[in-house]
Simulated scan of single mutants.
Amino acid sequence: MDDADLRELFRLMLVTRRLDEEAIALQRQGVLPAYAPARGQEAAQVGSAAALEKSRDFAFPTYRELGAAIGLGVDPVAYMAMHLNIWHGGLYDPNVARLAPPNAVVGGPVLHAVGWAMGAKLDGTGGAALTYFGDGASSQGDVHEAMNFAAVYRLPVVFFCQNNGWAISLPTADQVAGGSVAARAAGYGIEGHQVDGNDVTAVFEATRAALERGRAGDGPTVIEAMTYRLGPHSTSDDPSRYRSPEEESLRAERDPIDVAATSLSAQEISDAEEHAAAVVRRTTEGLLAMQRPPSDELFSFVYREPTAALLDQHRAWKESQDA
């Protein structure tokens, strides 16, 4: 990675941070119903997403991967429409973005990624899947099944765990037996690595190597990015109820934005701030200008061919609206 690469990754991280701050402000103003902050996880998300080859790879996010969306070039307005509750999963085209719709099911995107990786292996496209999940989600049976299946069939998938220290209010020490998600990979006979999740360069290099192994037919990899959620789990959460100010202050010393900024000049940082501010303004204006879709679209995309029961429900709904 050269200096230009680092500048670009820092720019994407800063856009993510400023959009994240704006999203919280919009939620507090009542514009967004709810939001899951990503502050502190920008390096893990941007660095991993940047390692993908958009011509053939695909990423499967949770509900907290704003940085991955920005790293893959998704229009922020289209992505944030999900949080505005305009459209479930955002208004961007997943096939173009190479980013699946955000998944709010804990551990859910891991299964989807493995299914996609099986398809990629069968059709010989040479692509690899990257799936996100947290340390809390690593306790889900879905994650075990996905890793075991991927290992048995040597699928091209990277299991990217963002260990942010907390499964909502439960610390990792009480959530992950053995203390390491990456160490579990050995039980499946696959690669497993811990990486500094606050160092965007380290994340990028580790993810790129894992994706290359997958594309080469060497099977899946588990990457555990050790990071920290600097904010609340969601805008309805109060982290002061379960962690101390001293802990938060100590962990803020490894803020991924500050870590990356140490390699940049003051002018480069200023330029990145100016760019991020412009993106935030444009995104906020776009979100506020959005119109809600027609209410009966609720029935439009359930099945390719609507069933008799769905048509009856639609008819009953229309009658209730006209009453």
Rank of each mutant, 00 (worst) to 15 (best):
D3M: 01
D5N: 08
R7M: 08
L9F: 13
T16M: 10
L19N: 05
L19T: 04
D20Y: 13
E21V: 05
I24E: 11
A25Q: 10
A25C: 03
A25I: 04
L26R: 07
Q27I: 03
A34V: 14
A34P: 13
Y35A: 02
R39P: 10
L52W: 08
K54F: 07
F58N: 11
E65H: 09
L66G: 03
G67C: 14
G67M: 15
A68W: 01
A68H: 04
V77D: 00
A81R: 02
G90V: 00
L91R: 15
D93F: 06
V96M: 05
L99D: 04
A100C: 06
V106F: 09
G107S: 09
H112M: 12
V114T: 09
W116A: 14
W116S: 08
A117D: 01
M118P: 04
D123A: 02
T131Q: 05
D135G: 11
G136N: 13
Q140K: 15
D142S: 06
H144E: 01
A146S: 15
A146I: 15
M147Y: 08
N148P: 01
N148A: 06
F149R: 03
L155P: 02
V157N: 01
N163A: 07
N163H: 08
G165C: 00
A167C: 00
S169V: 13
S169Q: 15
T172W: 05
Q175T: 14
G178R: 03
S180P: 07
A185M: 10
G187I: 00
E191M: 14
D196R: 05
A202W: 02
E205N: 10
E205G: 07
A209H: 12
L211D: 04
E212T: 10
R213C: 14
A216T: 01
A216G: 06
T221W: 10
T221P: 09
V222I: 15
V222M: 15
A225D: 14
T227W: 12
H233C: 13
Y242K: 04
S244E: 11
P245H: 15
E247W: 11
E247N: 08
E247G: 11
E253D: 09
E253I: 06
E253Y: 02
I257G: 02
D258K: 14
L264M: 04
S265E: 11
A266H: 00
I269W: 06
H275F: 05
A277Q: 15
V279I: 14
T283E: 13
G286W: 00
L287I: 12
Q291H: 08
Q291Y: 00
Q291S: 12
Q291P: 00
P293W: 12
P294V: 10
D296L: 05
E297G: 00
L298C: 00
L298G: 03
F301Q: 06
A308M: 10
A308T: 11
A316N: 15
A316M: 14
A323Y: 12
